[in-house]
Design a protein around this nucleic acid. Sequence first.
RNA 1: GGCCCGUUGGUCAAGAGGUUAAGACGACGCCCUUUCACGGCGUAAUCAUGGGUUCGAUUCCCGUACGGGUCACCA
Length: 545
Amino acid sequence: MDYSALANLLFPDITKTIADYEKQYPPRNLPEGAVVTRIAPSPTGFVHLGNLYNAIGERLAHQTGGVFYLRIEDTDQKREVAGAVEAVIDAMNFYGVHFDEGVTKDGESGAYGPYRQRQRRELYQTVAKSLVLRGLAYPCFCTEEDLSAMHEAQEAAKENYGYYGKYAVWRDRPIEDIQSELEKGTEWVLRFRSEGDANQMIPVLDGIRGELKVQENYTDFVLLKSDGIPTYHFAHVCDDHFMRTTHVIRDESWLATLPIHVQLFDTLGWQRPVYCHTATLMKMDGSSKRKLSKRKDPELALSYYHEVGYPQEATWLYLLTVLNSNFEEWHLANPDADSREFTFSLEKMSTSGSLFDLEKLDNISKEYLSRQSAEFVYDGLLAWALHYDAALADRMTKKPDFFKAAINVGRGGEKPRKDYGNWKDAAAFLSFYDAETFALVDECPERADGSMRNEILNRYLDTLSFADTQEEWFAKVKELTEELGYAAQPKKYKKNPELYKGSIVDVTNLLRVALTGRQNAPDIREISQVLGEAETRRRLSAYRN
RNA sequence: GGCCCGUUGGUCAAGAGGUUAAGACGACGCCCUUUCACGGCGUAAUCAUGGGUUCGAUUCCCGUACGGGUCACCA
């Protein structure tokens, strides 16, 4: 077969060679050990946790004086969604992940572009042509029906699926057949001619998993689709070679097609990048684990965390604890240090799929928020409310000082409260302060109910003085408690319950429910200070039955 | 079905051929406390399984089971 004739038949317009591109994209001039990596999402409009997960490459790149860039894998036109690129960039920026080069909102930057795959058509075709020239690629005119018939036949015969061996019907067709199909205008794809042996194992060093052995690829997979656009496999190899990527960080689901990628790098004589296959985030479904799914699990979408309102830093902290097993320990030892000071390493990444633990996220986020200033929390909550709770935003902007005072209750000091870990919870928790959203959610404690309810409330109202210090205030509560037949010390009541109507706990809880509508709320006097005397008295009076 | 990856408490996990097998979240209990919290202390709970190798294996090797992934002109 005259490969050169075939190559010109298939790619008449391609005049460049691989050498031209090698010249155009020279090796990067970077310090020894610098990591060049990227994220390469497809623009489907769905930015998920995995994107952020793999953006850990940003840390690696910047720790080593390397480069982190954004490439858009838009080879599948059908799935493309308008505005998706902006969504990715916005989401990454939101979490503090910034790109050195690649696609930007209004174009792109960097010397290794274009960074949108659809615009690199000529490059792929040049590489493809070189493979045809070497007899390592050929056109295949099979229709969709042909291929599914093949699949069925293989299923029936219990053979391995795929285009190989006797099923590779276009592999050795004479050039005349090809020519005549071409003249007819039949659609074709370009396939790789694999000389691989399924019994042959190739060692591959994975940056996370260590030494891997993969089966050599024996199928004639597709390089170029019928529209002349490459498949992921071919685009990945060409791009990461010419963009001089040193580390390919991606989900472990790519492990299955690693043989194809390795084979391509090797036959093209290009140096393989260090592959780093991350473990898949899992979720509990009934009693078994399964991969987080786009359709079933809202928490896979990054937008979910935005919507529920987890502060970006908290989300990032959680992700880091999952990503690097020694991060949590480091963070505990350096609670005030910026997470960026932590040195991230591939070796400390887990190889087994871990369950996504919302409870832990909550804990981390509560811990984080409890350490922030009222000002910070106010700003964060307001920013969130502007998106998701217009009424709250409105009230907050009308009474900023009131809200800040409310947020500040129990804040600061050695042991700050940890009442909420996200803005949605914060909004719910803080709702009782504002008269407009105040609502009774808990019941009055039993031992302070009935006729005692009014007595306690009336006595408290009588003695209440806003000028009192915390000590004076509490002394009065204690006095009232005893006078009404309750034990001022819970222990005393516990010991001799028959001597008392209840304990001070019942009294204070009654006051708390009257003031906040719930049993779980901060210090009573502090709350009253925020509410103001009039509102405090109004609520206490209103709660009498 | 073929192939690949994985398996330490409920969850996230450290660990190394010899350890009382860390720590965190969660659960439970106790303590502190005027309330709500916070905090402190503590308890329960783990090396999937069978064979090797070895003086010794949770750690190394092989098999099995289980879980996950993947087998497209999707990425």
